[in-house]
Simulated assay, not measured.
Amino acid sequence: MSVQGNAVNSLTMPLRWGDMDAYGHANNTVYFRFYEEARMIWLTGLGFGNAEDPTGPVIIKTSATFLKELKHPATLVVETYAGKAGNTSLDTYHLLKDAETGEVYSEGYAKIVWMDKTTRKSTPLPESLRALAAK
């Protein structure tokens, strides 16, 4: 996975003690929660992702590459990038980094599809998201 371009959002957050597992490092599911939080804050900041909206994002594919073990204490930065836009979908990428050193712990990916919440079918991607992907 290769993340390129300018981050469209950057979110700083701490690794919590409760994010650790029995092996003494952050469980792999925690990485996906960090990606999700960053993605939803980004979308909400753009005016999307509210529960009452008639349309919104759903994830149809996600992945992560774990590059470095993540241990408490740590302050993290999650950078979110807009990738290729389709008619109804958008590729998003994430880098999970150490806030102090910039060292990358993981790379993440999520393909989101824009969905009509009434019909439960895909609907055209909002133009403002398409424009971000074109940058």
Results as ranks from 00 to 15, higher is better:
1 M>H: 14
2 S>M: 07
5 G>Y: 01
6 N>H: 05
6 N>F: 00
11 L>C: 07
11 L>Q: 13
12 T>I: 06
12 T>L: 05
15 L>Y: 07
16 R>V: 02
16 R>I: 00
16 R>T: 00
17 W>V: 12
23 Y>R: 03
23 Y>T: 04
26 A>Y: 05
26 A>V: 11
28 N>V: 10
28 N>P: 00
28 N>F: 01
29 T>N: 09
34 F>K: 13
35 Y>S: 08
36 E>N: 11
38 A>W: 06
43 L>G: 05
47 G>V: 12
48 F>A: 12
48 F>K: 12
53 D>N: 13
53 D>Q: 14
58 V>C: 02
59 I>M: 14
60 I>W: 02
60 I>Q: 01
60 I>H: 02
61 K>C: 01
62 T>P: 00
63 S>K: 15
68 K>Y: 01
72 H>V: 05
74 A>L: 09
76 L>R: 06
77 V>E: 10
79 E>V: 03
80 T>L: 02
81 Y>E: 03
81 Y>V: 01
82 A>I: 01
82 A>S: 04
83 G>K: 01
88 T>S: 15
88 T>W: 03
89 S>Q: 07
92 T>W: 00
93 Y>S: 07
94 H>C: 08
95 L>S: 09
95 L>V: 07
96 L>T: 14
99 A>C: 09
100 E>R: 12
102 G>R: 10
103 E>P: 06
104 V>Y: 05
106 S>D: 13
106 S>P: 13
110 A>L: 03
112 I>F: 02
115 M>S: 06
115 M>H: 03
116 D>R: 08
120 R>T: 14
121 K>Q: 15
121 K>R: 15
121 K>E: 13
122 S>I: 09
123 T>W: 08
124 P>H: 08
124 P>A: 09
126 P>K: 12
129 L>T: 04
130 R>Q: 10
130 R>C: 12
132 L>Y: 04
